[in-house]
């Protein structure tokens, strides 16, 4: 594992996008950053710029209007990247699954690496989701390097 890979696994920067949530998951996600959970201990920083981000955290169902923004954000993130879907709505649409404006879960638009269930999931679960996503990201990166060699 090269230096950059090590650095990335020790300090992943996250980008959060609310694709149509009720706020519950967003607030729990923000709570992860604050003193009681404090993910900055693990080098995790919430960043506003998709071009600096490693992990995309998506909360909420995807609707027709937010799908375009979500796709756009994902495309702007540099490789390697991972997507974590947070909460019942991001998994399948949750309580809103048959509403007219809903396309479905996040996987209707993006390839999802980790699904964090719950309504709303606890901050501990969200942190574990990010850590799992890092593992997936690393595996993929190593496989890509082996393929290139």
């Amino acid at each position: 594992m090269g230096l950059i890979d090590i650095a990335r696994s020790k300090s992943p920067w996250i980008l959060h996008f609310d694709a149509g949530a009720c706020n519950g998951c967003d607030i729990e996600l923000l709570a992860c950053l604050t003193p009681v959970y404090d993910v900055e201990r693990f080098g995790i920083i919430n960043i506003g710029n998709p071009k600096h981000a490693d992990v995309l955290l998506v909360t909420g169902t995807v609707n027709k209007r937010s799908a375009r923004v979500l796709r756009n954000l994902y495309d702007q993130m540099p490789e390697p990247k991972a997507v974590v879907a947070i909460g019942a709505c991001a998994l399948s649409g949750g309580v809103f699954h048959q509403c007219y404006n809903i396309l479905g879960g996040v996987d209707a638009v993006l390839p999802v690496d980790v699904y964090v269930p719950g309504c709303a999931p606890k901050p501990e679960a969200i942190i574990e989701g990010v850590v799992m996503a890092l593992g997936r990201m690393q595996e993929r990166e190593q496989a890509r390097k082996r393929g290139a060699a």
């Binding site: 609310d18 694709a19 149509g20 949530a21 009720c22 706020n23 519950g24 909420g60 169902t61 609707n63 209007r65 937010s66 923004v69 949750g94 309580v95 809103f96 048959q98 509403c99 007219y100 404006n101 809903i102 309504c119």
Partner: peptide, 26 residues
């Protein structure tokens, strides 16, 4: 960007189920 269609969904579900739906407005 976060329109889900809760008001329409409330007509589809039972009035008792709606309690859980309206909780998830916010």
């Amino acid at each position: 960007y976060v329109h889900r269609g809760v008001e329409k969904a409330a007509e589809r579900m039972d009035y008792t189920q709606n309690v859980f739906l309206v909780e998830r407005i916010c």
